[in-house]
Design a protein around this nucleic acid. Structure first.
Length: 803
DNA sequence: GTAGGGTTAG
């Protein structure tokens, strides 16, 4: 398939979830990603042509002005500049020539600089100067410069010049001031087809597909016939807003107007169908093109990529090289990288990176951002960081990619720091930023911090977005504020499947299984069809709330009633349920018989069940499987080590600890946090650093005496004296959760629940203590551990003592 | 003798 050549790329073994139904779609490991002949850079045709023209022009006796014009028109910029700098004449005409030459050859800032020089030298700009100059300002997003130029145009009385206005329309739309574009457009005394096309295209540039189409229709109502430019832009609008019906209408128009052989229109049609999710239609258009160019192929590769057809996108890239002998370009790379990310095909991704370096594609803002994204999604955070921090130029999208990479790799702290840093840059967060950062808040924050980010979202006007609301529901639920999560859900104008899945999961996290099931019924009543994720939410809910029978019923109904094949996540939830029921043999058999390869999560679930039912042998087996999968899940090892300690197998404890040390794995330091007066208070075990420390310990002492201080210390007779000492150092009496609960009890008013968040799972001793504390203090205590929320009330916990 | 609108991209 694709890029690169000088070495063969091997794709990593693909886990079952990535195998497509058709076996023919697999990538052959012996196939290089990019063919070798494509590595040879195309000899510079342009340079040779320029040389020819120069020889021709030099041999003739023509004026400098004519010579300048010829050089500019043939792209011989160096020669043009040389002639220009040696000319004695300094007319507006020759300045216009040089500004146009610079702009058309991509030297935008230089074009602006020459305009300044022109002003400095007192040469008056005219209506021919501005279109090229504005184009240059647009290209480099020189908003302020563009506005100054606009004032100058008004002063010179050129603001009704049709060419200049058309250029201004595009400039304002591209730099984010589409209202100004519209004002210019509406104020034009005479509009031509280009003016309409500029406005249609301007709305697309501004991301407003709906207004673009309105403009397209208005133009026709005004009696103007759309040309190929109008159609290409209008198709862009349909692609942007996923307006399939409008897109199809335009396709009909294309056929009626006999535009169907226009390659650019065909490309736009592929893109439109691709973005609207109609892959078959896109393929149809693509197949009808006899002479495809790279852009057509790229549009098709992009279509497959956005429609989750990663293998097809690779196959398409191969076909482009093998059948059409075309060389992949930067856009090909950019379109393929998401497919690498989807398949976690790191080798392919690296091969593309290597190819890009060899071809001299880097540095390139979009390509580098796509690489950050790919490395992040393939779990290579270091590579993503290396890419991002070495980028010469970054925009909001690159920042979003890096923030998302941190979040996806469990580094919420770094993600939050980056989000703070963003404020020091010239960027304002957009929808994507919030969608990426909210999971980090879900991981780390408490309700007040969550509310702060929520109000920031409202301030920037993103609160009505379904996309963002879904992320907010999850964040509030994970922060412990289920009520606000539900409030947001209820107030949403448009709820999609993800909204329903999220609210069902929200209740699952808090152990309210019955509510999850009620919500599922409501969802069905509203005609929303569940998907695989819905069942992950539902089965988790059944598992957390101990609803074993209901869980089995939903698991069986997936395939039977909804045609959904259970995935590894569903098997994981069922295993949690079996673990809760206590039949470990059945759980083990369930793993042996399941049709998918067990993952670390599956073995982790068995390990948790073994811990709960004190089966050390099975726990060892589960941990060995986790080890064989090369998974660095610290929790598994700590769990086993604790089990060994509980039965007094101290040598084994030491062995696990030593092994962890050798592997460079550190035991996560447990900490619990409580919010009080908008401040977050953090406690570690035996913490005495808080201001109210004395009071906290006094309260803890009173409580402990009431619930029986030694009641939950494991049987000490099993311990060796030295180990007993060690154990006492870490006595559950002073565990961070209890310190946090004590602090919560004295700092919150009676009647309100005490909310504590913990970074690791709650231990059995503290779980028992929390139940007792809720009983004797008559307070609701809510402890969110790394997986679920425990609601302690009247001596009972919502998890029914299984977690 | 000069100028403006278009395809694929995170």
């Amino acid at each position: 398939m694709f890029p690169i050549v000088s070495f063969h790329v091997h794709i990593k073994p693909i886990t079952p979830r990535f195998i497509l139904p058709k076996a023919s779609k697999t990538i052959q490991s012996h196939e290089p990603i990019i063919k070798s002949q494509n590595l040879k850079s195309a000899t510079s045709v342009k340079k040779r042509r320029a040389k020819r023209i120069k020889t021709l022009v030099d041999s003739r006796n023509i004026s400098s002005t004519r010579r300048l014009l010829t050089y500019v028109e043939s792209g011989c910029l160096e020669d043009a500049l040389h002639v220009f700098e040696n000319m004695s004449d300094s007319s507006t005409f020759i300045w216009n020539m040089i500004i146009r030459g610079l702009t058309n050859n991509g030297f935008f800032q230089e074009a602006i600089d020459y305009y300044h020089r022109m002003q400095f030298e007192g040469v008056k700009a005219d209506c021919f100067t501005f279109p090229s100059l504005i184009k240059a300002c647009t290209a480099v997003f020189a908003t302020v410069e563009g506005q100054k130029v606009h004032s100058r145009i008004i002063k010179l009385g050129l603001d009704s010049d049709i060419y200049t206005c058309n250029a201004l329309i595009l400039m304002y739309a591209k730099v984010g001031y589409v209202k100004d574009s519209n004002e210019i457009f509406e104020g034009m005394p005479v509009k031509d087809l280009v003016s309409w096309n500029s406005m249609i295209s301007g709305y697309v540039l501004a991301g407003d597909g709906r207004r673009s189409l309105t403009c397209f229709n208005k133009m026709q109502a005004d009696g103007l016939k759309p040309d190929r430019f109008s159609i290409i832009s209008a198709l862009g609008a349909c692609a942007l807003g996923h307006f399939l019906l409008n897109g199809k209408e335009i396709h009909c128009q294309v056929i009626r107007r006999r535009f169907q052989l226009d390659l650019m229109i065909q490309t736009s049609l592929i893109d439109m169908y691709g973005k609207c999710g109609l892959v078959k239609y896109a393929e149809g258009v693509c197949n009808s093109i006899s002479q495809k160019n790279v852009v057509v192929w790229n549009a098709m590769i992009g279509t497959y990529a956005v429609n989750d057809k990663s293998f097809e996108s690779f196959a398409c890239a191969r076909e482009m090289q093998e059948n059409d002998n075309l060389i992949p370009d930067i856009v090909t790379m950019i379109n393929l990288l998401p497919s690498c990310a989807k398949l976690e095909a790191l080798a392919q991704g690296k091969a593309i990176h290597g190819y890009a370096i060899r071809k001299g594609f880097l540095p390139h803002l979009v390509l580098e951002t796509a690489l950050v994204d790919m490395y992040g999604k393939c779990g290579r955070l270091k590579l993503a960081e290396g890419m991002f921090f070495h980028m010469k130029e970054r925009n909001l999208i690159s920042w979003n990619a890096m923030i998302a990479a941190y979040v996806q790799n469990g580094r919420a702290r770094e993600a939050l720091e980056m989000f703070q840093d963003l404020r020091y840059e010239k960027f304002f967060p957009d929808e994507m930023t919030f969608a990426s950062i909210l999971p980090a808040y879900s991981e780390k924050a408490l309700p007040k911090e969550g509310m702060q980010i929520h109000s920031y979202i409202c301030k920037l006007g993103f609160a009505t977005s379904t996309f963002i609301s879904n992320a907010l529901i999850y964040m509030y639920a994970k922060c412990g504020d289920l009520q606000t999560a539900k409030k947001i859900f209820d107030s949403m104008l448009f709820k999609d499947l993800i909204s329903w899945n999220t609210i069902i999961l929200a209740y699952a996290i808090h152990g309210f299984g019955a509510s999850s099931i009620t919500l599922f019924s409501k969802m069905r009543e509203e005609g929303i069809k569940p998907n695989g994720s819905t069942f992950v939410s539902l089965l988790s809910s059944c598992s957390v709330a101990g609803m074993v029978e209901e869980g089995w019923e939903y698991f069986n109904s997936m395939k039977r009633d909804y045609g959904i094949n259970p995935g590894i996540e569903h098997y994981g939830c069922m295993l949690d349920l079996l673990g809760r029921a206590g039949n470990l043999d059945l759980a083990k058999r369930f793993i042996d018989e399941m049709p998918l390869t067990p993952t670390a999560r599956i073995w982790g679930s068995l390990l948790a069940a073994s811990r709960h039912h004190r089966n050390v042998e099975l726990a060892e087996l589960a941990r060995n499987h986790v080890l064989s999968l090369n998974h660095d899940n610290t929790g598994c090892h700590v769990l086993l080590s604790n089990m060994y300690a509980e039965v007094g197998r101290w040598e084994d404890v030491e062995q696990v600890r030593c092994w962890m040390k050798n592997q460079g794995l550190e035991n996560t330091i447990g900490c619990s946090i409580v919010e009080y007066n908008s401040n977050t208070f953090r406690f570690t075990n035996h913490d005495k650093s808080q201001i109210k420390s004395n009071m906290i310990y006094e309260v803890l002492d009173i409580i402990s005496r009431k619930i029986g201080k030694n009641q939950y210390v494991p049987d000490v007779t099993k311990f060796k004296p030295l180990d007993l000492l060690k154990k006492r150092d870490n006595a559950p009496f002073c565990h961070s959760v209890r310190l946090a609960i004590s602090f919560g009890l004295i700092s919150t008013s009676v009647g309100n629940p005490v909310l504590v968040r913990k970074n690791i799972r709650i231990c059995e001793d503290c779980h028992n203590a929390a139940k007792k504390i809720s009983e004797i203090t008559n307070r609701e205590i809510v402890v969110g551990d790394s997986k679920i929320y425990h609601h302690f009330r009247d001596g009972r916990c919502s998890c029914r003592d299984y977690w």
